[in-house]
């Protein structure tokens, strides 16, 4: 069942994780969002290209699908947990409550919310999704596509809006 290419891939995943645990996580350079994303994205691209070539050469498409999916599950889970520990707003509130912070102190967390809003708006502008025109923020064509995807996903999954 587990052919050599699959075993090679699993070994690569273990090595990637072990490198992070024993070496990379202690380095300051891997503490930014961009760096940790690159740590997963670029090796994943190399793996995808190698296994795509292998699939085209040997007609082993099931190996390609298995490898890409496993890489996706690993990287997505890793990056989700990483970003959750970085600065989840709800978790900041939970920690404040755990420290028995006074109600007024918890209300002070609103400053974090305001900082986040300003930072996110700036990010959306930097990404080219939002622009300021005549004193009003509006979507760019790319922003409209992204917003349409968000609206579609909200409608499809029927989730309540939490902000």
């Amino acid at each position: 069942m587990f052919s050599m290419p699959v075993l090679v891939f699993v070994s690569y995943l273990v090595a990637h994780f072990a490198f992070y645990v024993f070496i990379a996580r202690r380095n300051a350079w891997l503490r930014s969002e961009k760096a940790i994303f690159a740590y997963h994205f670029f090796p994943a691209c190399v793996v995808a290209i190698l296994y795509l070539l292998f699939a085209m050469y040997d007609d082993k498409w099931n190996v390609f699908v298995f490898v890409i999916s496993l890489q996706g599950i690993y990287s997505l889970s890793f990056l989700e947990l990483w970003s959750l520990t970085q600065g989840s707003y709800s978790l900041s509130i939970l920690e404040a409550i755990e420290r028995n912070a006074a109600a007024s102190a918890i209300d002070n967390l609103s400053t974090i919310g305001e900082q986040k809003r300003a930072a996110r708006l700036e990010n959306l502008q930097n990404l080219g999704f939002v622009r300021l025109r005549d004193g009003k923020y509006q979507l760019t064509p790319w922003g409209s596509v992204a917003a349409w995807c968000c609206v579609l996903l909200t409608s499809l999954s029927n989730v309540s809006e939490g902000n």
């Binding site: 509006q138 979507l139 917003a147 349409w148 996903l153 902000n163």
Partner: peptide, 28 residues
């Protein structure tokens, strides 16, 4: 996993909420 990640992100992300608001029209 990707679907769960996306719909939880859209429901709680400030950026996604901003995009949805601006989808309804420009805002000051």
């Amino acid at each position: 996993e990707l679907y769960i990640f996306l719909f939880t992100m859209v429901s709680s992300s400030i950026s996604a909420k901003t995009l949805r608001l601006l989808w309804q029209g420009p805002m000051s």
